[in-house]
Computed example of a mutant assay.
Amino acid sequence: MTTLFSVMPAHAADGRITGLAGKCVDVAGANTANGTAIQLYDCNGTTAQTWSNPGDGTLRALGKCLDVTAAGTADGTTVQLYDCNGTAAQQWAVSSANDIVNPQANKCLDVTGNNSANGTRLQIWTCTGAANQKWSAPASGGGGTNPSGFVVSEAQFNQIFPGRNSFYSYSGLTAALSAYPGFANTGSDTTKKQEAAAFLANVSHETGGLVYVVEQNTANYPTYCDWSQSYGCPAGQAAYYGRGPIQLSWNFNYKAAGDALGIDLLNNPWLVQNDSAVAWKTGLWYWNTQNGPGTMTPHNAMVNGAGFGQTIRSINGSLECDGRNPAQVQSRVDAYNRITSILGVTPGANLYC
């Protein structure tokens, strides 16, 4: 798995991106027409070789974007210059190993045929670690900052969740962070990234890779009303089904989360499936404040060094830990290892529960 970071200009001073034989990523003929070839060429200091990153995951030259032709994902698909349009074909991320990756295809920017001759086309290809896929670019922002302030960039988020439901937006997540400012913002940089990875791994498991916004088994919907609570179920018997990144369920959890967040979720639980920031806030509420079947919050498990396994215990330990469902535990651990790799951080110890 390729370890990804936000794309920044390869050289902050001049915007060059250099690769095989020390040559530059170049817009053929300095032509600004859509579909112009991107090639390898002797570095010459021209604007055809000056690339910028506005912070949205794109790489831009001559006012246009580096683009995978026809949004292709196959080995050998060429790259081109094209009007910036916000599509996944124009998203790029740079790895700690100096690969430049299109997250949609999960493939590397590649010099065709390992040929260093001027004019050789650039393409995408399965990442191999070969010299024709290595680019001189900073591994982790190159001194730049992530505009959101979150330790996970938008490009990394898109790489982690390539098939996500658009409801689970990066902007929704970053808007929710103010509710729990200590989340992924406590301790060393390693701890911060590990906590972010642990949270995202668990929500990925809970939602099928951020695909499901609501619980899929509708037959369960009427079962989440505890009428012994004094406030009852004002939104209806079947209104408190699982929603959001940690699948918030039960009337008492909607009440507690809503009270903590200053949002009336008891009377309007549908906010969790209609407002991305609210959904993310409920996930962060559980993560930062609830022990669940464990003995500590998932947040404390990560910042105090107890390890990823204790986050599993706090979320679903009564059904998965201590040998109850090792396959589910392994699924969460696999997701965590993949995401820590993307964030360029070690996973730490105590991964299992």
Score class of each variant (00 low, 15 high):
Thr207Leu: 03
Ser188Asp: 13
Ala327Trp: 12
Gly144Trp: 08
Val79Trp: 07
Ala93Phe: 09
Val27Ser: 01
Arg313Met: 15
Asn337Arg: 08
Gln156Asp: 13
Gly242Ser: 12
Tyr221Lys: 01
Asn118Val: 11
Gly142Tyr: 06
Lys64Asn: 06
Ser153Asp: 06
Lys134Cys: 06
Val272Pro: 07
Pro293Glu: 12
Ala176Ser: 05
Ser153Val: 03
Ile339Gly: 03
Ala219Leu: 03
Ser331His: 04
Ala235Phe: 02
Ala71Thr: 14
Ala257Ser: 06
Ala12Met: 07
Val94Met: 05
Trp135His: 05
Gly113Asn: 07
Ser230Asn: 12
Pro147Met: 09
Ala71Met: 06
Ala61Arg: 02
Gly76Trp: 13
Gly209Asn: 05
Leu81Tyr: 06
Asn118Gln: 13
Gly129Ser: 07
Asp226Cys: 04
Thr46Glu: 15
Pro298Val: 00
Ser228Thr: 11
Ala48Gly: 14
His205Val: 02
Tyr224Asn: 03
Asn291Pro: 07
Thr311Cys: 03
Thr73Arg: 08
Cys353Glu: 12
Leu20Lys: 01
Leu343His: 04
Pro138Gln: 12
Gly141Pro: 11
Ala71Lys: 14
Leu122Asp: 06
Asp334Trp: 08
Ala175Arg: 01
Thr32Lys: 11
Thr223Pro: 08
Thr190His: 10
Val7Asp: 13
Asn337Asp: 10
Leu109Tyr: 13
Ala93Val: 13
Val203Ala: 00
Gln237Pro: 01
Gln328Ser: 15
Leu20Thr: 06
Gln290Lys: 00
Asn44Ser: 12
Thr73Asn: 08
Trp227Ser: 15
Asn350Phe: 09
Ile315Arg: 03
Leu62Thr: 07
Ala198Gly: 15
Thr346Asn: 12
Ala238Pro: 06
Gly76Ile: 07
Leu173Pro: 00
Lys193Cys: 07
Thr190Lys: 10
Thr297Cys: 01
Gly242Arg: 01
Thr295Trp: 15
Thr69Tyr: 15
Asp42Cys: 08
